[in-house]
Design a protein around this nucleic acid. Sequence first.
DNA 1: GACATTCATGGAACGATGTTCCAATTGATA
DNA 2: TATCAATTGGAACATCGTTCCATGAATGTC
Lengths: 221, 221
Amino acid sequence: MTKRTDRRADALSRERIVEAAIAILDAGGEGALTFRALAARLATGSGAIYWHVADKDALLAAATDHVVTQAMSGVGGGEADPRAAIRVIALGMFDAIDAHPWVGAQFSRAPWQPAMLRVFEAIGGRVRALGVPEGAWFNAWSALVTYIFGAAGQNAANARLQAPGTDRSAALADIAGGWARLDPADYPFLRQVAPQLAAHDDRDQFLAGIDLILAGIGTVR
Amino acid sequence: MTKRTDRRADALSRERIVEAAIAILDAGGEGALTFRALAARLATGSGAIYWHVADKDALLAAATDHVVTQAMSGVGGGEADPRAAIRVIALGMFDAIDAHPWVGAQFSRAPWQPAMLRVFEAIGGRVRALGVPEGAWFNAWSALVTYIFGAAGQNAANARLQAPGTDRSAALADIAGGWARLDPADYPFLRQVAPQLAAHDDRDQFLAGIDLILAGIGTVR
DNA sequence: GACATTCATGGAACGATGTTCCAATTGATA
DNA sequence: TATCAATTGGAACATCGTTCCATGAATGTC
């Protein structure tokens, strides 16, 4: 009847390792997660970790799975309007990746993770409820999930290349300033939208894209 | 009058280094690009490379820039229809990343690269020509570039996690088979679209998403 | 033409990483 | 208690990005 986890009160377990890894990733980003740092935090050796986790890729996959699962647990099937439900799911993923930027990079390294299947299904179910003809389901679903995870990855990249302590709006103003100084003959558009780049909110921008795709799906009859 | 590159016929140069790096990346993927492999291919030492390139990040950025620039050079301003022009630009990026999958990962590591500005501007100019109200320009542009680079990154990820010699359609069939075997109660949608997943063409799928966004932009008046 | 100076090279060396290996320890079983 | 498998912890290995520096090549100066 004794479980394996009872062998010691402070026993190592896959779950404890994944949680420690997430803590390190959140605190210091991708570069901070090393087996030595992980072993130090868990007061053990790196060899012991390998007994529970195959390698670093598996560890990152498990950490990503954990975060996505947690983010999706908050999304109940409560929404009646499928469009509203899609917005809720998309924003849930956006916020999860905003809180854990390293997750964004994982999507472009190892898709098809089990937790993502639930996101895929959740979006797909609402697409079906949207009333578009069956022949358009796959395209509509694909565009949505591609946008959601693609935008997530890019947002995470932006978050990651920012110096830890610095202000986001200041960094954005820097880039916008660069756009405003481009050659007017070559870059008329970027010069013109530079102020909007400086002022925009990532979350609103993300949602605006979702709404554009939903509007496009609405034209399919 | 003697240029620095004339000092030796076989002189090292940033350009030669970047080209060698691209060759290695294309042949063996991201993992294959090491300064030792690069030095061996160029018949020199790793220290000499650092004279021309700051570090590995700069090298990857330069390689990405090279590929994107080349891809964009084929996209003239010839298209009269802005929608058609957007499709051409988007497909140009898709094909470039399809040919050099490692480029996709770079976008989610270092955006705002100089070559990307030209892509941004090219898309932005056509959005303006689309006839949508000025207040919607930024959102429409943002949705398009987010989708293009996001989808590119995900496609590159799929290409990368595939065993080098194996058939793509076989790998896709494997995943689709997994979807078809999911619990019908939990995953009705994924089960249903599994055959389409197995049969779909990435390029067509990508373009369908572009068209959905364009359709959505068309509804903004 | 001889010399000093700058540019450029190539390979040794350093610190850090992912991973493997194995002796020692722990807890369950008989 | 004696035995055995499960688990631990840390040393060791190969490889990586990067730095350092002694050496060679080209250029400018008298």
